[in-house]
Design a protein around this nucleic acid. Structure first.
Lengths: 123, 123, 123, 123
DNA sequence: GTGGTCTAGACCACC
DNA sequence: GTGGTCTAGACCACC
């Protein structure tokens, strides 16, 4: 069963953190097609959060086609190469966009941005 | 007078958003040494937040040596090359670190990170 | 648990009195690494001051690296030899500086200042 | 006429600052017997403080025998060698006592206290 | 229960 | 008008 080992930080809404956490696990290849998710109640107890918050997370994942829920059944992960790719791209672009925005605001150009990342990775 | 033209989002504490906004303006060269900041009350009215929250922001900026406050005077910006450099580095490293963390979680390496940024910038 | 047994005077801001009180206890060796501080609410009740004022004190102590605060846990003291030394020096220099300033204003020199202290201590 | 060139700091009550300031000037030999003090109103205007506060200062100085006020006359300083000595001793002991208290709380002894002052003065 | 943020509002010193 | 301190109390996330 999929484990949402999440480090909740208090500034971002919990449900957004959980959705992103799920997507990262998915894009990182840690989730296989058909894997079961915890029930709403289970996850609520595990993370000590309101089951309604969990419900909101699952609903959004379902809307995005990332999980499937059948009546009275646990939700299961839907994983295909194209889904993985889509989420991977989404997360990547979000991160890249934030990085670019931050550096542009400081007056840096592409060459600087590349150099800074290169150096950081070498550490 | 320095204008904090900022759109506050509701997920991050207001005072942290304002501190970062000031630092970005500073690092971007938009603030000159001696520039006046709005009074606590003025900025509170402008942003529709409590003057106490503004006070907290100004106090932190003062602690970091970025503004100076004298009795009965509006606070003024302290801008020197070394301060600019310090803040610039701080903001840059924060952004780069977040980018690296996000991409590492997705299994990307340095070469990928560089390539992604390069492509995004070309758009 | 650390006890802030302090008599607050009304002329100096409460939060400054409490910060100094903590530093004196620390420099005097009365606080051990890992000692728990009272919760914000507890100390507020004990000293009959607002918990927000206590929060301000704790925040400053945290900024100076003297305590650590984790979510849902009482704050704990951070005590290392180098921290003790740093605070000890800070408090000592402040006291010495005030003494020198007062005596200089009266026209005394170093020899007088030393003699006065020596005699006071003999009593 | 005696000038109360005071740097008002906001944490200590004004009247106490003024009383001490007068005593320091007296003990430093800057005041001569018969020197006129500003009128209550004048000093209130000069320092932009309430005349009642000035009145409180003058009353205390009068109680301690440091000034004399005759009907409808400006107050005048009373300076004799023994008064100077008394005030000088009072201020000195107050400063020394504070210094000793601070250092004792830190565990220092007489030798340390002397050494610290000696070194500070050499700077 | 724990820590953290924010508001509303009072009151202070100083101009 | 300016900055600074403090209180009372609400509401949040997390346990």
């Amino acid at each position: 069963m999929i484990r949402f080992d999440v480090q909740l930080n208090s500034t971002e809404p919990i449900y957004l953190q959980l959705i992103r956490r799920y997507k990262v696990m998915l894009a990182a290849g840690e989730i296989r097609d058909g894997d079961e998710l915890p029930s709403r109640r289970e996850l609520g107890l595990m993370l000590v959060i309101n089951p309604n918050t969990v419900q909101r997370v699952y609903k959004e994942l379902e809307t995005e086609g990332l999980i499937l829920t059948h009546n009275n059944m646990k939700s299961v992960a839907v994983v295909t190469p194209s889904i993985c790719e889509r989420i991977r791209t989404e997360l990547t672009e979000e991160a890249a966009h934030q990085y670019k925005t931050a550096l542009s605001a400081l007056g840096y150009g592409a060459a600087d941005a590349v150099e800074i990342i290169r150096r950081l990775w070498e550490k």
